[in-house]
Design a protein around this nucleic acid. Structure first.
Length: 413
RNA sequence: GUGGAUGUAGCUCAAUGGUAGAGCCCCGGCUUGUGAUGCCGGUGGUUGUGGGUUCGAGUCCCAUCAUCCACCCCA
């Protein structure tokens, strides 16, 4: 590393060819699987009014209060780089006048921005594959959304994942549970860590997923939301489980899954890998039936999830790049124009072609080899004058004289 | 925002405070139109940056930047 270098911003990484190959594979699988569930792709703005996230995620959350790239533009408007996709999707759904257009099933793929301290699987600019359904309220849809997430990940060939589900209740039953929980927590407050104590009043449910061992020991017998659900929520939760069972999707109930945001209700879920260290959540989501209402729309049920593209990529490892179909070896200055013409003709046939740039035969063959060429087209004066083409199969070493049409057929096979 | 580890060639890494090296990669050669193996040679570094201690610093100290890991938070 010599001298001062122009560097990318901290926590913002380049997608170089090897990595993009993996991303594209993931995206292709997502598009394919989501299409089978009749989801449509949407492309939403990266810049949004800051107000959107203040109102949806909440001003007191870490994301909004310390992690957003927010600024005032030249016109004095408060705008920010989106830290997540759901709020923008809801905004677009309302702005697009789709509230009476029936159930909307959307997905999107794109960058999100949070100014956090970078870590394994946590970048300041990262990509999410997100999914939202607007206008479907039943447990059946929850089960199908989870089934879609499940088949997406298994189609990618990622195993060793755990699906954990929970119910967060609803405005009808959560307040009562909250009181029960707070009184439990207050009883053992002396044995809980500082952050837990601070949360007892602010956000008691967050105490449940504290990582401090002493706290977890103390919380062994803490009351759990799933045992305090109202009838409607309980029916919904068992409906979800029936659906998962019918679809043969393995899951575990984890009563400690919580959400920091108030608009979440009922179903919450995470798919976790134990191979990614502390940032092991590969996909997470839940139901948010009150958000659309809160953002000024008609009361509309909604559920969604988001998966981290980079985290998925880490689980997949490298993908070998496909080599080119043909490398052109041109021998002698006088055949260069002819060799360029041949390259162009082959490309018109849809083949991928690299011209090795002339020079010694050895040099050009080395280039052909490094490009992973399946075949080499040798063009010298003999070939140019005879109209025949010398084609070498790089895997077998076999070499033959062919016409252009024969060549194209050979390579395509 | 807090804590810890690490920054030496394009990459992976060496170098008791005393002349900065290896392997891989890259480039060229081993007789004129044939690669992936072999042999020979070559390019490439103000040791992240800026200060300090010392006769002398890649090595010790301070600061700064970046990366990694964890906390926090979260996909």
């Amino acid at each position: 590393m010599a001298g001062k270098r122009l560097q990318s911003i901290r926590g913002i990484h380049d997608g170089l060819p090897a990595e993009v190959l993996v991303w594209r594979h993931i995206e292709e699988v997502a598009r394919k699987v989501f299409a089978t569930y009749a989801f449509s792709e949407v492309r939403l703005p990266i810049l949004e009014p800051t107000e959107l996230f203040v109102r949806s995620i909440g001003e007191v959350t870490d994301i909004v209060s310390k992690e957003m790239y927010a600024f005032t533009d030249q016109g004095g408007d408060n705008i920010c780089l989106r830290p997540e996709g759901t709020a923008g999707a809801v905004r677009a759904y309302l702005q697009g006048g789709l509230t009476r257009a029936g159930i909307q099933r959307w997905f999107y793929i794109g960058p999100m921005f949070r100014r956090e301290r970078p870590q394994k699987g946590r970048l300041r600019q990262f990509q999410q594959i997100g999914v939202e359904i607007f206008g479907a309220s039943g447990p059946l849809e929850d089960a199908e959304v989870l089934a879609m997430a499940h088949s997406f990940l298994s189609e990618l060939g990622i195993s060793e994942l755990n699906l954990e589900i929970n119910s967060l209740g609803c405005p009808a039953c959560r307040p009562a549970y909250r009181d029960v929980l707070v009184s439990y927590l207050n009883k053992c407050a002396g044995n809980l860590c500082e952050t837990c104590n601070a949360r007892i009043d602010k956000n008691p449910m967050r105490v449940l997923d504290c990582k401090v061992e002493a706290c977890q020991a103390e919380l062994q017998n803490a009351p759990e939301m799933i045992h305090h659900l109202c009838t409607v929520c309980e029916t919904h939760f068992s409906g979800l489980q029936d659906g998962l069972t019918a679809l043969d999707i393995p899951y575990q109930i984890n009563a400690r899954i919580v959400r920091g945001l108030d608009y979440y209700n009922r179903t919450a879920f995470e798919i976790i890998s134990d191979q990614l260290g502390a940032q092991g959540t590969v996909l997470a989501g839940g139901r948010y039936d009150s958000l659309i209402d809160e953002l000024g729309g008609p009361p509309t049920a909604a559920i969604g999830f988001a998966a981290g593209l980079e985290r998925l990529a880490m689980l997949l490892g490298e993908i070998r790049a496909a080599g080119v179909d043909i490398a052109i070896v041109a021998l002698g200055e006088q055949v260069i124009p002819y060799s360029l013409q041949q390259s162009a003709l082959l490309r018109q046939q849809g083949l991928s072609v690299v011209h090795c740039g002339g020079g010694s035969a050895k040099r050009q063959f080395k280039i052909a080899d490094r490009e992973g060429a399946s075949f080499v087209l040798v063009i010298g004066e003999d070939e140019m004058l005879s109209g025949f083409i010398t084609l070498k199969n790089m895997a077998t070493g076999e070499q033959q004289q062919l016409t252009f049409d024969q060549l194209v057929r050979t390579v395509i096979d």
